[in-house]
């Protein structure tokens, strides 16, 4: 784990504790509260049911790195978390998918949302597991190209 990310995680944990006014994050909650909600927001943005949730966690970690390096983004994230869930993980996860969508719609015109949307898009759609899900096979150079691997294998066209 690089330093920026570690600092970011520490920072968000601290912020979460402060904003909870002394209520501690449940001991059995893995990760940190903002991170779990943010990861679920990333999922709600680009929900692929058959895609491992690990992909969304990894994308959220990268997002966290970027946010943690900017006081401005960190402040924006805290505002967004307030609007999304009243800064409560329980509130967020109590929402139905429709409820989550409606909550996200409330922030979708903010610069923070545009930042998250852009990063989430790059992160999810550059991920090899997403490629596998969608049927994109990536670089073929190491296999000699697609010339012998189906570039002209279509079989459903009319004669």
């Amino acid at each position: 784990m690089d330093i920026a990310r570690r600092e970011f995680l520490q920072l968000t944990v601290n912020l979460a504790l402060v904003s909870l006014g002394g209520h501690s994050v449940a001991d059995d909650t893995p990760g940190w509260h903002g991170g779990k909600v943010l990861s679920d927001v990333v999922y709600q943005l680009f929900p692929h049911e058959r895609l491992s949730r690990d992909v969304y966690m990894q994308v959220t970690e990268q997002l966290g790195d970027s946010i943690g390096q900017s006081a401005e983004l960190t402040a924006m994230m805290n505002n967004a978390m307030e609007v999304l869930s009243g800064n409560s993980q329980e509130n967020w996860f109590a929402l139905s998918e429709r409820g989550k969508t409606e909550a996200i719609e409330k922030i979708q015109h903010t610069p923070f949302f545009q930042f998250v949307l852009n990063e989430a898009l790059s992160g999810v759609y550059r991920h090899p597991l997403t490629w596998e899900l969608l049927g994109y096979e990536g670089s073929s150079l190491e296999f000699g190209g697609y010339i012998d691997r189906g570039f002209n294998d279509i079989d459903w066209l009319p004669d």
Binding site: F46, V124, R126
Partner: peptide, 24 residues
Amino acid sequence: PESMARFLRPGSWGRPYTRLLEQY
């Protein structure tokens, strides 16, 4: 996939969009 997600319906998100992208 990334360019498709970026350009097919710029700014879109949510389940209807990912259902569409799953037809890649």
